[in-house]
């Protein structure tokens, strides 16, 4: 009897232990560290709210925050639209369709370093494919220096990230599309609905739980964007493409400012938490609760 009470806890103990050790522990530790000045090598020094005050007074922090919000505002709608279109196109019973689904999924599983190298060549100012097309086919005499121009660098990161991740969300949408019962479409066709009406009145509303998942997931990933910045622009030019996660990394591991980086991490956590809470708050207004 005594063992029966303990047994369930023993089963979940490894999971709880791992969670405590590798998630909750670091979350608490970084909160404490955010009140210190700590270069990792020597003992931390307590500075109270110093890191948070510095953050609030830092022009770079506000620029980085703005970059992160702009990135998110461009990336999330972009990836949802692109992946939904891909999913609708690939939701057909055609010969070889599995190949195309695999093809569009490939970027998602490709190393970011390889992706960055390829896109760097595409966007290269002088020898890039894009600029040569703009020059030779469209007569643009001075095409932009995409990666070296403060007006374009962040946009390039958005494009590359959409390209890389759309395949994943396409699969999610595809699963959603295939779970919509065919009799609903049949009924709509009998009622005389055209393709656009079917898409906007049936497909989209029925997909809303999946869209909600994609929205939340892509939002969180957008706020945490790091790899593409690291691999393509290193945050340049002049912080124009520095995202919050990359700024945290630089402060923690390049500038050895663990305390400041931890304070930044809490700002990011707060931001992601607020946006996610907001999403869940308005969920009922547009997400279909129907179980089909």
């Amino acid at each position: 009897m005594k063992y029966k009470k303990i047994t369930p806890y023993l089963f979940i103990a490894p999971m709880i232990g791992g969670l405590a050790l590798f998630r909750i522990g670091p979350i608490i530790a970084s909160f404490v560290i955010s009140f210190t000045r700590w270069n990792v090598r020597t003992a931390p020094e307590f500075v109270g709210l110093g890191n948070y005050v510095e953050m609030a007074n830092s022009d770079i922090f506000w620029l980085v925050l703005k970059n992160t919000l702009v990135f998110t505002a461009l990336y999330v709608p972009g990836v949802i639209v692109v992946s939904l279109i891909l999913a609708v196109i690939l939701n057909q019973k055609l010969k070889g369709i599995a190949f195309f689904r695999g093809l569009y999924f490939m970027p998602y599983i490709t190393s970011m370093v390889a992706v960055a190298m390829a896109w760097n060549w595409i966007f290269s100012t002088r020898f890039g494919v894009l600029n040569n097309v703009l020059k030779d086919m469209f007569g643009v005499s001075h095409p932009p220096a995409w990666l070296a121009d403060r007006n374009y660098a962040l946009l390039v990161l958005v494009i590359v990230t959409v390209w890389k991740t759309a395949g994943f969300y396409m699969m999610v949408f595809l699963a959603g599309l295939q779970s919509i019962p065919s009799h609903i479409y049949e009924a709509a066709r009998i009622d005389g609905a055209n393709r656009f009406q079917v898409f906007f009145k049936i497909t989209l509303p029925m997909l809303s739980p999946v869209t909600f998942f994609v929205l939340v997931f892509s939002l969180i990933n957008a706020f945490r964007t790091f790899e593409v910045t690291y691999a393509m622009t290193q945050g340049g030019p002049l912080h124009a493409s520095t995202t919050l996660a990359y700024y945290i990394y630089r402060n923690a591991f390049e500038f050895n400012r663990m305390g400041f980086a931890s304070a930044l991490a809490y700002a990011l956590m707060l931001l992601v938490g607020l946006i996610t809470a907001l999403n869940f708050g308005v969920r009922r207004r547009w997400v279909s609760q129907d179980i089909y």
């Binding site: 760097n120 060549w121 966007f123 290269s124 100012t125 002088r126 020898f127 890039g128 220096a145 995409w146 990666l147 070296a148 121009d149």
Partner: peptide, 9 residues
Amino acid sequence: PMPAEMEGI
């Protein structure tokens, strides 16, 4: 050249 011209190399 301006550094931007050599971006990507």
